[in-house]
C-alpha cells in the first residue's frame, strides 16, 4: 500500500505541469499573478513579446528586466534564476499566459 501511494505521488510529480510544481509554490496569490500579467501586457503588448520577456527575466532576473514595482522588490527580494530547463520553463510560461492573459478578462 505504501509502495502504491509512493508510486502515485512520484507519478503525479513527474507528469505535473512545471507551472504548477514550480511557479505556484511561491506565487499563491492569483491577483498577484494577474497583476504581473497586466504589467507585462502594458509594457510588451503581444503574446510573443510577453512570453519572450518573461523567459528572459526568469532565466536571469535583473531589475531592468523586471516589471514589478521597486517597493515589491524591496519587500520580497529578487527572484533566483530559474533552474528549469528551457522546455519546462517555456511550458510553464505558456500555462501562465493561458490562465492570465488580459484578453480573456475583456468583455
Amino acid at each position: 500500500m505504501v509502495k502504491v501511494v509512493c508510486i502515485l505521488l512520484v507519478s503525479i510529480y513527474l507528469f505535473a505541469n512545471p507551472y504548477e510544481t514550480n511557479c505556484l509554490y511561491c506565487h499563491k496569490d492569483k491577483k498577484e499573478l494577474k497583476y504581473f500579467m497586466a504589467e507585462y501586457s502594458l509594457k510588451y503588448s503581444s503574446e510573443k513579446k510577453i512570453k519572450k520577456a518573461i523567459f528572459r527575466f526568469l532565466k536571469n532576473p535583473t531589475s531592468n528586466k523586471s516589471v514589478t514595482p521597486y517597493g515589491y522588490i524591496i519587500k520580497h527580494g529578487f527572484k533566483e534564476k530559474s533552474r528549469l530547463n528551457d522546455k519546462d520553463l517555456k511550458d510553464a510560461i505558456d500555462t501562465y499566459y493561458d490562465k492570465y492573459n488580459i484578453k480573456q478578462f475583456i468583455k
Partner: peptide
C-alpha cells in the same frame, strides 16, 4: 482606467 482596475475586475470594453 480599465487597465488600472484589471486586477480587481473584468474589463468592460
Amino acid at each position: 482606467i480599465l487597465d488600472d482596475n484589471i486586477v480587481e475586475e473584468v474589463a468592460f470594453y
